[in-house]
């Protein structure tokens, strides 16, 4: 187990290195000069003031050196100062990250709680009305974008159920329960597409497993239908489903940006969007790096759960 886990984690080092390189490079690929943004359009680019800004931000150094300076800082948790606010970026991220984390985690939980049983039920009733119903709803869920569902939910609820607080402040540190309550609706909206994906993967995997001879063996032992379905069926179908969960988790992080905007949540997506509007390069770099690292971490967890789920991997490591 340890060797497998260590192997997976070592493999992520080059991935994370690449991620950092990308987050750094993206900013320098965007047209426009940071200095002109910072100093204002009236200041000449070769003036004393502009030169000072360049020096302060190490922009007078060659790119690899700039990257090195930035990376060393990032490794210590110092992402530099926000170009707009002048404050360090790291505390901003720390204060915005929990909302996004809780939002994605809740969505993932919803998606699994809905998608998994729905997929099993659809496979078990293949071709009959429960299957058709589940698939129709799933198609609807997949083809309706979250910004639409989000806006529609906000509008309808504020019209017909005004006492339901949709847009209240989220303060997870001091009022965790209240924060989670506020996040319920956004998490639900965010989870729709993922629930659909998980349902479809579960259904497909279950359809395959249902015809396996070991399912008949389990029935012949005298195990009840539900027991056979879960302990023998779902347990085997879980591998492809876990892969799907990993993929959707990445989509969830991306979708959180939109949903946070719709519901006005102070998450990392909002932070990133604002930073992009204001050309706050250091802020953008840092948030992109954090979000991508998050996705990489989720995928490590998926890899590790393969190990727990499939004894055949345990042998071949």
């Amino acid at each position: 187990m340890l060797r497998y886990a260590a192997g997976r984690i070592v493999l992520t080092v080059p991935v994370l290195f690449g991620v950092s390189l990308m987050s750094f490079a993206i900013i320098h690929l965007i047209p426009g000069d940071i200095v002109s943004v910072l100093a204002g359009p009236t200041v000449a680019l070769d003036s004393e003031a502009a030169q000072n800004i360049r020096r302060a931000l190490h922009l007078d150094q060659p790119l690899p050196v700039q990257y090195g300076i930035w990376l060393m800082g990032a490794l210590r948790g110092d992402f530099g100062n926000s170009l707009v606010m002048g404050l360090p970026v790291a505390p901003q991220i720390v204060s915005h990250l929990p909302v996004t984390l809780v939002l994605t985690a809740m969505s993932l939980l919803f998606a699994i709680a809905v998608g998994l049983p729905a997929g099993v039920a659809a496979a078990k009733t293949r071709g009959r009305w429960p299957d058709l119903f589940i698939r129709a709803v799933a198609l609807l869920g997949l083809s309706t974008p979250p910004f639409f569902v989000g806006v529609a939910a906000v509008l309808l609820l504020s019209l017909y159920w005004p006492s339901f607080k949709i847009l209240s402040a989220v303060d997870l540190r001091h009022d965790p329960l209240g924060g989670i309550r506020t996040l319920l609706l956004p998490a639900f909206v965010l989870s729709l597409a993922s629930a659909t994906t998980i349902m479809r993967y579960t259904r497909a995997a279950m359809l395959e497993v249902l015809t396996e001879p070991f399912m008949a063996t389990a029935r012949a032992k005298g195990a009840g239908r539900l027991r056979v379905l879960i302990r023998h069926g779902l347990r085997n179908a879980l591998l492809p489903v876990v892969t799907a969960v990993g993929v959707t988790a990445a989509h969830l992080v991306a979708g959180a940006v939109v949903v946070e905007q719709v519901f006005g949540l102070p998450g990392i997506g909002q932070l990133m969007l604002n930073a992009i509007y204001h050309r706050d390069y250091t802020q953008v770099q840092a948030t992109v790096l954090v979000v991508t690292t998050l996705v990489v971490l989720i995928n490590i967890m998926v890899d590790l759960s393969y190990y727990a789920l499939d004894p055949r991997i345990q042998q071949h490591g």
């Binding site: 396996e212 001879p213 070991f214 008949a216 063996t217 389990a218 029935r219 012949a220 032992k221 005298g222 195990a223 009840g224 023998h232 347990r235 085997n236 789920l309 499939d310 004894p311 055949r312």
Partner: peptide, 25 residues
């Protein structure tokens, strides 16, 4: 029937390679 299956009447299947569940010992 579930009380009879595997208890009073048991069955051995044709395909030993696929008749055992791969994820349980």
């Amino acid at each position: 029937l579930e009380a009879v299956r595997g208890n009073r009447i048991s069955m051995v299947f044709q395909e030993p390679m696929t008749s055992l569940n791969p994820v349980h010992t």
